[in-house]
Each structure stands twice: as structure tokens, then as C-alpha cells.
Design a protein around this nucleic acid. Structure first.
Ligand SMILES: NC(=O)c1ccc[n+]([C@@H]2O[C@H](COP(=O)([O-])OP(=O)(O)OC[C@H]3O[C@@H](n4cnc5c(N)ncnc54)[C@H](O)[C@@H]3O)[C@@H](O)[C@H]2O)c1
Ligand SMILES: NC(=O)c1ccc[n+]([C@@H]2O[C@H](COP(=O)([O-])OP(=O)(O)OC[C@H]3O[C@@H](n4cnc5c(N)ncnc54)[C@H](O)[C@@H]3O)[C@@H](O)[C@H]2O)c1
Lengths: 221, 221
DNA sequence: AGGAGTTTGTGAACGCGAGAACAAAATCAC
DNA sequence: GTGATTTTGTTCTCGCGTTCACAAACTCCT
């Protein structure tokens, strides 16, 4: 692979690599906060919890940002990853369904610090309208279209019950949203041009329980 | 592959398959609630949002629970998957860090309905002690050891800030917990006999932002 | 300047998972 | 009963991701 210039962003980055870049970004931020200016792939891999060869290969998809015999400049590499990920710009986000989870998400400072700005909190329940959460007022769900247009929102978060999720997704797509983060335990049907990411909290617990179960049955065997 | 009897649980199930079993379980529950008694692999695959060949291969790791030319008995298959996953028994769980996210998790009914019972809510902040969330009182973090022993807790959930997460994990392991679900954005260092599952909500958003970014730069190219 | 020591970037081997395709097994029609 | 039809369980192939291993490239010391 030849060297890449900073404006050469055309190459495909494997999905598995993309999923790890945020982890590297966080590890670099931590290193930077502790005053580290240079780090080796070994150091960074340990901080990110991955194999160092994998880390180097991942970074090689972005370009050649290290120095052999030395390592990586922490802040420089961090900027390069952030730029590639789109983390150097601000992403307006709407959250739909301001119940238990929606409140937690709205209050989460980690989104803001990573470039996501909650521009609206929407709920179908009139009882919730007018409530202010983390400085943002809860508004009716029907305001979705106007908000998306006004702020150029591309990313929507669904935190409604499963029964409403498909309907909410349809309206989001209709309003112009092209990426959805879904917390409801349902499979969403959307067009191929819409990206859906699903977070299933109880699935994670169920997988852990499976391994516990296996450990137990193997011991008694 | 030969037929398997119901007590033959020794075979290794691929991790990718284990991760999908909860999805199948949920799809089967939905089908059952609508009154469906028999379904084909095609039906179930559509409900779960996967390829039907993949579904059949996944199920074949558990045993041969379908009937050729007919399909699967919904309730029977659901029971078999639940048994394999350990979902037929009750799993006591402790949640540590009852802030924004901890409150949402404590209030989440989906855990209970899938066999997880929150036996304790723990927080280091004395201000929070005594508060009742979803019928469970918030107690001091130092009670962890006693609670784990008393209830035989194997699974712990970490919802504290990142700075405290490693310490909480160490104490959990010391108290006898062997599976941890971590919501803090940190890599946890634990022994090889402890399973850690990490849920990183902002990572998911960052991956979506990356794809949005790519779409945008490709259009302008 | 040159050699010793480090660390990156990448070619190559390997293993796992996804999906196509098909044989085996069950039902149904008559 | 027998053939047509349906649907499962499994084999086979392909591609992706992980990891090893090493040459290339850089620094540091003398
Ligand atoms: N609370 C958790 O920790 C947790 C964990 C895992 C998954 N989830 C999932 O996240 C989702 C939300 O959970 P929750 O505990 O916050 O539920 P909740 O009932 O507390 O909140 C849901 C909110 O969505 C609103 N809503 C319902 N239909 C709507 C619609 N069509 N348009 C707009 N808003 C609508 C409701 O008014 C309510 O405010 C659920 O699907 C749940 O399964 C929650
Ligand atoms: N809120 C969200 O939606 C969200 C989203 C993604 C990730 N997270 C992550 O989840 C974690 C919790 O987020 P939050 O918004 O609930 O934070 P929070 O500050 O509201 O709550 C943290 C709680 O942990 C308690 N705590 C701190 N140190 C502790 C210790 N050593 N032992 C026991 N308890 C301790 C605090 O007293 C507090 O009650 C954070 O790591 C955050 O990054 C939260």
C-alpha cells in the first residue's frame, strides 16, 4: 500500500475496523489527558484492549501516520482518526421517546463531547411535553419533520417501546433521516439507503447468562 | 451431524450463533403471542431479520427440533432455545452506579421478563442511599460482597463513570461475580475466567456518523 | 558514518462465518 | 401405496477478519 495524502479518503475501510476506531479515539484521548505525546502501537493496543498487529493494520487503512522506530504522535493520530470518522464536525441528533432510557440518553454528556448535539427531544405523550431535560424541552412527535429540515438532522435515536418503533422509524425516514440508532427490541424494516444500528441491552445479558450456564453444566459433567 | 438428545449440551456453539439466539427467542415470543403455532425457517428468519439458511444452521447446533416438510413448533423451539441459553432459570443481578443510566436499567421491565432479577442497586454516593427505584432500595457499594454471597449473584452491571469502573470491576470479581456487563467507556482488565461484555452507546453513534460522512464526501466527489 | 536497536506497515497463512445448493425426510393428494 | 411438494439439516465454497512474521524505515549511540 502506498502513502496516502490527507485528502485521499476514497478507500473502503473494513466494517470491523470502523467499529474499532472509536475505541482507539477514546484511548488516544485518555493518553493525551495523561500528558503522553508519543505512543507505540503496543501501548495504544494495550490501552484499547486489542492485538497490536490488528491495531497497526487498522490504522494502515487510514494512511501512514506513524514513524518507524518511534511510534505515533498522539494528538496527530487522534486528529486523523477523528477527521476520518467525521468527529471533527457537529452532528445534530433527535431522540424520540423520552421515558426512562430517553432521559438517560438526553442527560448523557458523552454524546456532546464526541460531537453529537441533541437538537430535539420528542415524545407522543402530551404529559411529557414542555418538560426540560438537560436544557432541551420535550416537544410533540409531530414536530419531527420541521426539526429535521431546520437543523439538517441526519441521525435519529429511537427509545420508544417496541410497538411504536417501526412507526417512528418510518416517520424518521420520511422526514429525511438516514441513520437510526434503535434501542427498542424490534427488527426495523427500512430502505437500503438508511443505516440502522441496534443496541439490545438484554441480549448482552442473555449471552452472559449462556456462558454462565455452560460453565455450570460443564463443572457438573 | 447426528441427532441430539435434550440432555446432550456438550457441543460448542459458535459465538456468532449464541449472539443471535436471543433474537430468535424474541421473534418466537412475538409469533407465539400472535397465535402462531408452527412456522417455517423462512418465516422465523424474516421475523428475526436474518437469512433463512443461517437460521437453520444456527438451530442445527442446538439439535434437530424441526420437522421436514412442516417447520418448527413455535413453543417447543422457544423452550429448547430458552433452555440452552439458561433462560429457563432466574439470574440474580446487581447494578452498580444508580445515576441516569442506572435508574433506566433498574426500571427496565425487559430484564425481568427475560429471567433477570435485580436483587440489589448499589452506589458509592451516600446521598442516593435509601432511594427506592423500581421497588428496590439503593444501598452502599460496600454491601456488594454480602449481597453476592447471599443471593449467589454471578452477573454484575457497571453503570458508574469510567473513572470508577475498573475499581468496581475488581471488587465485583473479588466478591465472586464472574460475568460483567460494562456501560462505562473503559477497557476493563479482569482475569480470563471472568466474562466481560461492553456496551458502548456513543460508539454506535460514531459508526453511524462515519457512514454519513462517507455518503457526503462521495456525493461531492 | 555506520551499526545496533526499535517500531511501523504489510504480505501471507489461517480460521471462522455467511450463504448457496442440495439430499434427506416428512406431508399431502389421490 | 405412490408420486409430487414442501421444508429441514448439512455440505461445500467463498470472502472477510485475525494474527504471525518480517522487511523497511527510523533513531540513537559511538
Ligand atoms: N430502560 C432501559 O434501561 C432499557 C433497556 C433496554 C432496552 N430498552 C428499550 O428502550 C425503549 C424505551 O424504554 P423505556 O424504559 O425508556 O420505556 P418508557 O416506557 O419509559 O418510555 C417510552 C417513551 O416513549 C414514548 N412513546 C411511545 N410511543 C411513542 C411514539 N409513537 N412516538 C413518540 N414517543 C412515543 C412514551 O410516551 C414514553 O415516554 C423500549 O423499547 C425498551 O424495550 C430500555
Ligand atoms: N446516561 C447515558 O445515557 C449513558 C450513555 C452511554 C454511556 N453511559 C455511561 O454509563 C455510565 C453512567 O452514566 P450516567 O449518565 O448514569 O452517570 P451518572 O453520573 O449519572 O451516574 C453515575 C453513578 O455512579 C455512582 N458512582 C460513582 N463512583 C462509584 C463507585 N466507585 N461505586 C459505586 N457507585 C459509584 C455515582 O454516585 C452516580 O450515582 C458512565 O460511564 C457513562 O459514560 C451513560
Amino acid at each position: 500500500m502506498t502513502a496516502r495524502t490527507s485528502h485521499d479518503t476514497a478507500r473502503e475501510i473494513p466494517e470491523a475496523t470502523v467499529a474499532r476506531l472509536p475505541v482507539y479515539l477514546r484511548a488516544l484521548t485518555t493518553l493525551s489527558e495523561v500528558g503522553t505525546t508519543i505512543c507505540s502501537s503496543e501501548d495504544l493496543a494495550a490501552a484499547a484492549g486489542v492485538n497490536s498487529a490488528k491495531l497497526r493494520k487498522d490504522l494502515s487503512y487510514l494512511g501512514s501516520y506513524g514513524t518507524r522506530g518511534v511510534g505515533y504522535d498522539v494528538d496527530y493520530l487522534r486528529y486523523q482518526i477523528a477527521r476520518e470518522m467525521g468527529a471533527t464536525r457537529d452532528w445534530p441528533v433527535v431522540i424520540v421517546g423520552i421515558g426512562n432510557l430517553g432521559h438517560a440518553l438526553a442527560n448523557y454528556s458523552g454524546f456532546r463531547s464526541r460531537g453529537f448535539r441533541v437538537v430535539a427531544l420528542l415524545d407522543a405523550d402530551g404529559q411529557r411535553h414542555g418538560e426540560v431535560v438537560a436544557g432541551v424541552v420535550v416537544r410533540p412527535f409531530r414536530d419531527l419533520r420541521g426539526i429535521v429540515r431546520e437543523h439538517g438532522v441526519a441521525i435519529g435515536v429511537i427509545a420508544t417501546p417496541a410497538a411504536s418503533a417501526q412507526d417512528v422509524a418510518d416517520q424518521m425516514v420520511g422526514a429525511g433521516i438516514t441513520s437510526i440508532l434503535n434501542f427498542a427490541p424490534t427488527v426495523l424494516n427500512v430502505g437500503a439507503d438508511v443505516a440502522v444500528s441496534k443496541v439490545d441491552l438484554s441480549k448482552e445479558l442473555q449471552v452472559l447468562a449462556y456462558h454462565e450456564q455452560r460453565k455450570a453444566t460443564q463443572e457438573t459433567a
